[in-house]
């Protein structure tokens, strides 16, 4: 092990352990995912240092690129806000779990400490034809059957993913006519036929949380997405309009403000 590798290891290893421990501590699942991503990228760096550049790249592409993104997709699907419940269903589970984890760590570390390892050979000879080529020779020579089986496994897993997440339609698919009739039927209850108006565009502001102004100059409540309204994250239009007017006054002091809209508001 060279000096540079030693420094890299001692910088990276504690950070990776902290990130992995974060998996135990953090409440939100998204934060846990970020912790795991950090550990995985750290591992990729360690692979490259350990004369396995191909695996390092595959680690970034497959694990952080595909697997963790899949995790995040499912998190978004299941609901990011689904925080862990704190109530224990099995009494003392936390302490038993921690005890078992500590015991496992003690056993593993003890085994590694007890074992005598041969003097490290290094991969300089095995990697003489570059690492990917050497890897491919073993993979497609000695382990070609295992490789084929793994290919079958991947196809099966892809099919399983499709089958498991396939949703069977319970009712008949509504036709366009039925949808239109339902919309008309809902008119007396205050629904409208046309699409909802888009959020407002102002001189200084063009965002989803600002309501558009109707023909009468009043802000339209329903031009802001429903989710933002429920969360109470919409901004008031009057505040933006006054900001806009002061800006106009600043640029063109002679220009008169349109009085009729002022009165209306």
């Amino acid at each position: 092990m060279s000096g540079g590798e030693e420094v890299l290891f001692w910088v990276l290893a504690p950070l990776m352990v902290i990130a992995a421990a974060g998996l135990l501590v953090v409440r939100r699942a998204v934060h846990a995912a970020v912790c795991v991503v950090f550990v995985m990228i750290g591992l990729a760096v360690l692979y490259v240092v350990q004369e396995a550049p191909f695996l390092g790249i595959v680690q970034v592409v497959v694990y952080t690129g595909a697997v963790m993104m899949l995790f995040l997709f499912v998190l978004m699907l299941v609901g990011v806000d689904a925080a862990d419940s704190l109530t224990e269903t099995i009494r003392g589970q936390r302490w038993i779990g921690l005890l078992l984890g500590a015991g496992l760590a003690a056993v593993l570390l003890g085994v590694v400490a007890q074992a005598t390892f041969p003097p490290s050979v290094g991969l300089a000879q095995a990697n003489a034809v570059t690492n990917p080529v050497a890897l491919a020779r073993v993979l497609l020579g000695q382990y070609v059957v295992a490789m084929e089986v793994v290919g079958i496994l991947l196809v099966t897993a892809a099919l399983a993913g499709l089958v498991l997440t396939h949703r069977r339609r319970l009712g008949k698919k509504p036709t366009q006519r039925a949808l239109a009739e339902a919309k008309v039927a809902a008119l007396p209850t205050g629904r409208q036929l046309t699409p909802l108006p888009a959020p407002g565009v102002y001189a200084q502001n063009n965002a989803m949380d600002t309501p558009a102004l109707g023909p009468d100059g009043r802000p339209l409540e329903h031009s802001v997405p429903r989710v933002l309204r429920i969360r109470g994250q919409q901004r008031s239009a009057t505040e933006l309009l006054t900001a806009e007017e002061t800006l106009v006054q600043h640029i063109e002091p002679d220009r008169r403000t349109p009085d009729e809209t002022e009165e209306d508001r």
Binding site: M1, F9, A13, M16, V17, A20, A21, L23, L24, A29, A32, V39, L46, Q50, F71, V74, L75, V78, A82, D84, S85, Q93, R94, I96, G97, L98, L100, G101, A102, L104, A105, L108, L109, V111, V112, F117, S120
Partner: peptide
């Protein structure tokens, strides 16, 4: 190189503890 094995052991034990302790299936 044994240090790498120590690191692997610690990470493995942390992963196992996560499986035992957390309730969210994704975590």
């Amino acid at each position: 190189l044994v240090n790498y094995l120590y690191l692997a052991s610690i990470l493995f034990a942390l992963g196992a503890t996560t499986v035992l302790l957390r309730r969210n299936a994704i975590v």
